[in-house]
Structures are given as structure tokens and as C-alpha cells.
Design a protein around this nucleic acid. Sequence first.
DNA 1: GTTAGCACTCTACATCTTCGAGTGCTAATT
DNA 2: AATTAGCACTCGAAGATGTAGAGTGCTAAC
Lengths: 343, 343
Amino acid sequence: MNIGDRKQLILQAIIEDYINTAEPVGSRTISKKYLTAISPATIRNEMADLEEMGYIEQPHTSSGRIPSDKGYRVYVNQILAQQKIIEMHQEFIKTEFFDTLGEIDRLIKHASKLLSQLTSYTSIAMAPQMKSAMLKRIQLIKIDTTTLLIVLITNSGIAKNGVIRVTKDLSHDLVDKLTRIFNEVFEGLSVQDINDGMIKELMLRMNGYHDIAEQVLLEIIRTLQYTDKTEIYHDGAANMLNLPEFKDIDRAREFFNILEEKEMLFNLLNEAENDVSVAIGSENKYEQLNDCSVITATYKINGKTIGSIGVVGPTRMDYTKVISIVDCVKGNMTEILTKLLNR
Amino acid sequence: MNIGDRKQLILQAIIEDYINTAEPVGSRTISKKYLTAISPATIRNEMADLEEMGYIEQPHTSSGRIPSDKGYRVYVNQILAQQKIIEMHQEFIKTEFFDTLGEIDRLIKHASKLLSQLTSYTSIAMAPQMKSAMLKRIQLIKIDTTTLLIVLITNSGIAKNGVIRVTKDLSHDLVDKLTRIFNEVFEGLSVQDINDGMIKELMLRMNGYHDIAEQVLLEIIRTLQYTDKTEIYHDGAANMLNLPEFKDIDRAREFFNILEEKEMLFNLLNEAENDVSVAIGSENKYEQLNDCSVITATYKINGKTIGSIGVVGPTRMDYTKVISIVDCVKGNMTEILTKLLNR
DNA sequence: GTTAGCACTCTACATCTTCGAGTGCTAATT
DNA sequence: AATTAGCACTCGAAGATGTAGAGTGCTAAC
């Protein structure tokens, strides 16, 4: 899929100029600012070719060209292939993160803020996913005669709470016994791993307390799933209003609507691949994002993917910069989380 | 501070028309739509007086009048005094809430969504404040050799977690003993109540484990305070972009910036008074909100205020409707929470 | 005290014009 | 054969102009 060296250079020039100015780029500009050795006329010919091939577009006759999604794709692939990831802000991000030891939630929110500040776009981030996390420990605590607190602790050291109301007054000994059984059956498993066999075993051992066992089990599943879909953060939404592409109120409103659809953000982040992935304009599965680009990456603990972060910006996005930053933030999160867990 | 019956009627007409249309209101409109018995000329005279008194303003010579903050204030005071709170959506809100039994967080988020949907403005809501909540129970759980999970349970049945890392490997018995001491010293108190005397007592009884006691105490305080300032939700921000007053991107950007300042939202909600309070335009303590109105109310458990909710909209806001809705949602939250706790 | 009448003001909107950036094509140049 | 200069043409952005309409304040009549 080689499009020719000179064409490639011209495409790159168009993209980079457009990223900076948000204005269609003309042949004269390219000749003057980027490729002084080539005359505007020649560039015009090449641009006609590039347009025919679908890499650039003309908003109207007699205006300059703007990159198409396909054009950006070529450009981004080049960046990704060349591992052109710059050590930009590397040091800054590192020091920023070392200031936020503490709870994981805080780390995620901090990462989100950092992403939006550094990129000047909108960041999104999901907290560690509980559905696939291994349960290290389940603890039932009796709060009062009818209330039971369920504390779930995962292998990654994250704790979540759920509450159930019971009709019988359970003795402390019984609560301890239930706790023990739950741990023996489910320790080391994730919610996804639970199958009928285990439930049968649980019920067998819970003889006489089937109703409570069921209640607890349901609450465990509900707590974990609820957490996953709701602990989604975003930051820097207001940044978007600085961009010329959002001077149109309708577009802006659509964008802000997306941010309030947690479900959608969840799906976006859930598709993030191992490393850094980029979805450009129409490549996005949601129509509403068809003139945005989304860059996502996953963070891990001990090599296991547990959540993801991302940046949403206009298709006219400074890809090199944003990819670098997302990559770097993801790397630092992984590092910190792993250290935190193993120390 | 009686401004005269007819003037009052005219002011009211101006405000109500302006709320609907967002256009300056002229004398002819009032004569035709509201006060058919009075001629435009008379109304013009009265309007000149109202303007002199500061209740209405003229954007430019030869345009209609718009209400000033002072004008809105008179209008709102009237609503509040007459207890003109309508039973609007009462039934709907009630049934909506009965669908969300479960965790308190969920309830708050749901309330926030409901507020923004019903009002078409932006809602804000804070989760129950932990700083002033009474601690019912403190539970330390050993996760592994160096990690201790702290579970805090308040009187209102809300649980929060904190984690600390310790250098010594503590035995289970010791952890239980520490748990017991912490409970004996702090049960029934709020963080705010903690004083030097208690810390001394704690240290005395924790002989030999001062460092751990201190670590736990700090983490307790930090967890509660952190929660308070960060668990602030908002919803319906995109609604604002439908309003003509936000067609100006700069104003919109400013507004969205406010929403990302959790600190500010926290302070706004923290000032909410018992019942429903209204801050109109320049009455707001933050300059950025000078052309917005904020309506807040507090929700309670067993008669004790534990958090608050609010709606932010343009000064040209349908006060009657919004005040009613905020009042009603607050009432339902209080009811549900109290029931939830006492059953 | 109220109202009709009128001259005046100001904005919003539509129309027109101009300017400049950019193009594609052709013919000359390398 | 590839490149470039030259030129006529296109189109949008921005300013200028004109007009209609909504609204006012004032005066004089009711």
C-alpha cells in the first residue's frame, strides 16, 4: 500500500498543518512551509491524485484540502509502526504520580485529570474491573440485627462493599461460619468463573441457610457488576469548547451527551486493546463519535489487564503527542499499581 | 417593601413571559397576553417606574424589559412565602424512587439524574457527608502480611474502606484486639468529635503499637474527608446547551469549567440550608455563577441532615417548577433513606 | 389617572459587494 | 517526461447597505 514517497510527504504536511491550524491547507502553504523544493503547481497535481485515492478531501471547490479519516489512518499507522512515541512529559508524569500514593480510586481520578490537562482534550478512565478480578477474600460483617455488610477484597487489593438485609437475626458465630464457607468456595475465583457446580456445593454446605446464601451471592454479583459500569470518570470536557470544531453548539451538545452515557463510555473503554489503540472518526463504532478520535490503552497489575484509560478529541488531533501521553500514563499506572500491590 | 399591586402584577408578567421566551418583554405583549384591561401606554409608564426602582432592566433603548436579579428575588420570595410549591411530578418521583432500593450511592446518582431530567437544567448532588456522621463500627481486616483494610460503618448504615500498609506482620488476634480498642474509643463519635483526650486514651491503651494506631487513625480521617469532597455528582450538563443564554461558547465553557471544580460544587452544596434555598444571579458567592441561579436543599436520615442536592440553571429559570421538584425529590430521599435505615 | 398617537431608536436580517485564497488547465521550460 | 509559470475561474468570509419591526418616551386628548 505504498502511495509514493512524495505523496506521503505531502500528505504528512497537510495533516500536520491541519492539526495546527484547523484550516484547509493549500498548495502554496505546503510549498512555502514544508517542501520548499517543490513548486505549488506540482503539489497541486499530487494533491489531485491524493484526493482521487481518498486520502484528502476538499470542503468546497477552490479551498485547500483537509485529511480524510483514511488519510489520518495512514499517518497514525506510520506513527505506531515507527514507535514514534516520544518521551514527552515522561518525567513530569512520573513525579505527578508519585504524589498520589493511596487509594486506587484516587489514582484513577488523578490519571484522568492528568490526561486531560496534558492533552487539552477530554479524558476518560475506568476503575479496575471487578467482574474479572480474582476474589481474595469475602468478609461478612453483622452491622445490626437485620443488616449484613459484605466486604469483597480482590487479589489486586481492592475492596468493595455491599449490604443485604436479612429477616432472621444471625448469631456472630453463624456469620463467621458463613464467611468461612463463602471463602472456601469462592476464593481465588472471579465472578465470571462461578458456575452451577459451585453454587450447588455452596448450597449443600449452606444447608438450612439457602435463602441467605442466595441473597449474599446475588449481592456479590450485583456489587461487582454495578461498580464496573458506574465507576467511569471523565475530565476536561470543557477543553473541547476551545476547539473550532465545537463552535457549533449542536455538535458540542452531542458530545456532552455522550459523556453522560456511562454505558457508552464503558463500552468504548472495554474495547481497549493491550497496548495503545486508535479509532479515527468513522472507525468509531458509535455514530455520535464519527468526527472524533478515541485513543485508549489498558493498565495492568502484575501483567493482568484490569482497566483502561483513554482520550477523546477531534479527528484533527495531535496524534503523536496524545499517543505518547496515553502510553506514558498507562505505563506509570501499571508500574505504580504493581509496586503498590507487591510491596 | 410593597411596590404597588399593579406594578407587582406587571413585574410578574414580565418575569413569566421572559422565563418562557428568553426575549425582552414589551408593553404591548403584556397588555395583550397578561393584563388585557390595561393599555400598553399605562404599562409603559409603570415599567419606567419599575426600571427606576431596579426591578427590571432594558438591554438597550427601544427594546423590551428583562427582569433584574432584584426583580427575580421579589418574585421568588413570593413563591416561597406563599408555599406555592406544587405537587408537580409528585407521584412520578415517588414511583421512580421506589425502584431504586439498594445502595445509597445509587440512590444519590438516581436522584441527580431525576432532577436534571425533570427540570431540564443541570443537577448537582453530594453523597452523605461522612465527616459529621457518627461511627457505628470500625473493623480492621488483615488482607495479607503487610496490608490492613479498615472498614468504617456509620450510624446511617454507610460503609467506606481505607487501606494501610504496616511494617510488622500482625497476628489475627492482635488485629481483633486493635479493632476492639478502636471501637471502644470511637464508637458513637464523628471525626469532628475526636479530641486530644481521646487520642491520648487510644495511645495509652495501644501501648506498644503507637505507630499503627496513628496510621489507622490518620487513614480513618483521610478516608472520610476524601469521600466527602469527591463524591459529588452532576447530571444533565448537556441540557444547558439548549438554552439561548449558552449559545455563546465562552459562557458555556465557563459553566462546564465550574462543573469540573469539585471543590466549588462541594462548597455550593455545603451551604444548602435546611429547607429549599435559592441563590439568584449575583447573589451567588462565586462570580462564575453570576448569571445562574442555584436552588439547593438538604436530605436527612432520622431528622439529621446528611447531604444535599441542587439544581443550577439560568437566572431566567422556571422557579416555581424547579423549587417544587427539588423540594419533592429531597422529601422522597429523606423518606426512603429513613425507611431503609429503620426497617 | 389613563390612553391614543406619533416621532424616534435600535436590532435583526437579508442582500449585495468585494477581496483573497485556492484551484485546474494549458503552455512553456528543464 | 516531469516540472513549473501563468491565468481564468470559483467560492466563502467579511464588510457595507438597506429595510422592517418591535419597542420606547413624550405630548395631548379623554
